[in-house]
Simulated assay, not measured.
Amino acid sequence: MRGLFISFEGIDGSGKSTQARLLAEALRDVGHDVVLTREPGGSAGAEEIRALVLEGDPDRWSAETELLLFTAARRDHLERLINPALAEGKIVITDRFADSSRMYQGTRSGDKRAQVDALHDLMIGCEPDVTFLIDMDPDLGHARAKGRGGTEERFEDFGAELQHKMRAGFLQLAQDHPDRFRVIDGTRDIDTVAADVLATALADIKARA
C-alpha cells in the first residue's frame, strides 16, 4: 500500500520546519514509519544544489536559473528518497516541495507561474497528498528568519516585501486547492500549533486507511 506524502509550506520564519519535525516525532511515537526530509535537499545531489541556491548574494541567480536548479534538486530527491519510501508504505514529511517554487521562483521576478507549472508537469508530475500551510504575519516571520543567523539567508535578504507577496500567494494556493491544503495559524505557541497539526494529520491518515 502506497504511503502518505505530506509537505509543509509557509514564508520564512513561519515555524514550518519545527512543525514538520514535531509531526514526524509524534507520528513515530504512535507507531508510524516516517521519513522526514527537506527541500532543497533530501538526497546527496539535492543537498549539493541547496548550498548553491540558499547561500550567497541575493542576485546570484535569476529566477529562471533558480527554477532549473530547484527542479533538478527536486527530481533527484523524488527519485532517490520520496518515491522509494512511499512505495514501501512509509509516511514522507518534507519541509517544502513544489509549492515553494510556485511562490518563490514563480512570483519573485514577474509572473513566471506558467513556466514553473510547465516544468513541474514535465519533470516532477506529482503533488503531496496533504500540505500544511503554517500561516504567519510576514513582518514577524521575516524578523524571526533574520534572527536565526547562519549562512542560508539568501531569500531572507530579498526583504519583507517578498514575504508579503509569498504569504498572499500561499493563501491563494490554499484557496485554489482546498482538498490538499490545511491552513494552520502559526502565530500561536509551538505546542498548540503542533497539537493542531497532529490532530489534522491523524484525521487525514484515518480517512485514507
Results as ranks from 00 to 15, higher is better:
E156L: 03
G56K: 01
T18M: 00
D139C: 13
A26L: 06
T37Q: 05
G149Q: 07
T94E: 01
A72G: 07
T18A: 07
L22E: 03
A195Y: 11
L78M: 14
E127N: 12
G147L: 00
G45N: 12
D196K: 10
P40W: 02
P40E: 11
S43A: 08
T37A: 02
G45C: 09
R180S: 09
G42A: 06
A209H: 12
V193H: 05
D129H: 14
R167D: 15
R21N: 04
D204S: 13
V197S: 04
D111P: 06
M123H: 10
C126I: 14
T71V: 07
D99R: 04
I124M: 08
S7A: 03
R154N: 05
R102Q: 13
K112W: 10
D135P: 14
A51Q: 12
G42I: 04
L22I: 06
D196C: 06
F97G: 00
V35S: 02
S62Q: 13
L81Q: 14
T18S: 14
T94D: 07
A72R: 07
K16I: 03
D129Y: 06
G125C: 07
L86V: 08
F158D: 09
R50E: 00
G169H: 13
L171T: 09
A195C: 13
R113L: 12
D139H: 11
L78I: 12
R154M: 03
E47M: 10
L140V: 15
E9H: 02
E161P: 01
P138W: 01
H164W: 15
G110H: 03
E127T: 08
R21M: 07
T65G: 14
V197F: 02
L23E: 06
Q19F: 02
D117T: 05
E25Y: 05
